[in-house]
């Protein structure tokens, strides 16, 4: 009895030891929840091709990812917004570009808005769809929480110095914003273009539809970078993963998933 317990304990130790060993050679990528699904894809294919490598993808948000890269808690931080001036000491690598889509319910009559109108809606100046040619209904504004990279990019590209109205509904992921807009005929929100599906409709901005071509030709204005950030130069192991992401194959995965390749 005693002996079998001891054997069991030793086995357990070995398993834990092995698991630790494996994590030791791995890469931890943490940060933006917008980048996460794409990073998962990259990691999956990369680990198929390099069975000895372990890439561990975590969420947490852009600010948290940048912090983690700074503190060394992860090897690569991911961000879905530009770095702020005080974060510029990190090495940044653009791995993809993403359009921000302004989405509404599929039944909404509005098809096109100017950036000024979008700003008006989100600051709370425009409160009724009638004011911009829609039905006589109050607008349900859906935004993201403070610190989110998507919100950061939206703030930078659309709101500039103005604040999002306090009455706006706040959700903590692209997915929940999409769900609310899909369910509420009077809602408007913004999500990553790659995540727009047929339950919601992306609006034209200044007459330009949100498509890959218009983003590449820079006609569609709401574009943000997806960044990998590292503290100092990336280590050789990380370099290899980043090279894979930037390679033709990695970038092809990106465009398959609805993002805009950088090369």
């Amino acid at each position: 009895m005693q002996k079998s317990k001891l054997v069991f304990f030793l086995c357990l130790l070995t398993v834990i030891g092995c698991a630790r060993d494996k994590a030791g050679t791995g890469i931890t990528v943490a940060g933006s929840t917008s980048v996460q699904p794409f990073a998962d894809k990259w990691a999956e294919v990369y680990m198929d091709e390099h069975p000895d490598q372990v890439v561990n993808i975590q969420g947490g948000g852009s600010s948290a990812g940048i912090q983690a890269a700074k503190s060394g808690a992860c090897n690569i931080g991911t961000s879905s917004r530009e770095l702020k001036p005080d974060e510029k000491d990190l090495t940044e690598i653009v791995v993809a570009r993403d359009g921000l889509a302004i989405i509404v319910h599929t039944s909404n009559r509005i098809d096109n808005l100017t950036i000024e109108q979008v700003k008006g809606i989100f600051t709370g100046k425009i409160r009724n769809w009638r004011e911009i040619g829609g039905n006589d209904k109050l607008i349900t504004v859906v935004t993201r929480e403070e610190g989110s990279g998507t919100r950061g990019a939206f703030q930078e590209l659309v709101m500039k110095k103005d604040r999002v109205a306090k009455s706006a509904i706040v959700q903590d992921s692209n997915g929940t914003v999409r769900e609310i807009v899909a369910g509420d005929p009077n809602a408007i929100g913004y999500i990553s273009l790659g995540l727009v599906n047929n339950k919601v409709r992306a609006l034209k901005l200044n007459g330009v539809p949100a498509t890959d071509e218009n983003i590449i030709s820079k006609k569609y204005k709401l574009v943000r970078p997806f960044l990998f950030v590292t503290k100092g130069e990336p280590t050789p192991v990380c370099r290899e993963f980043i090279d894979f992401v930037q390679s033709a194959e990695g970038q092809k995965l990106v465009s398959e998933e609805g993002l805009i390749p950088v090369k």
Binding site: G59, G60, G61, S63, E145, E146, G147, S148, V170, D172
Partner: peptide, 11 residues
């Protein structure tokens, strides 16, 4: 809970 994941510094 909403903002914990993203917050840093004074936030």
């Amino acid at each position: 809970a909403l903002e914990m994941g993203y917050a840093s510094g004074e936030h």
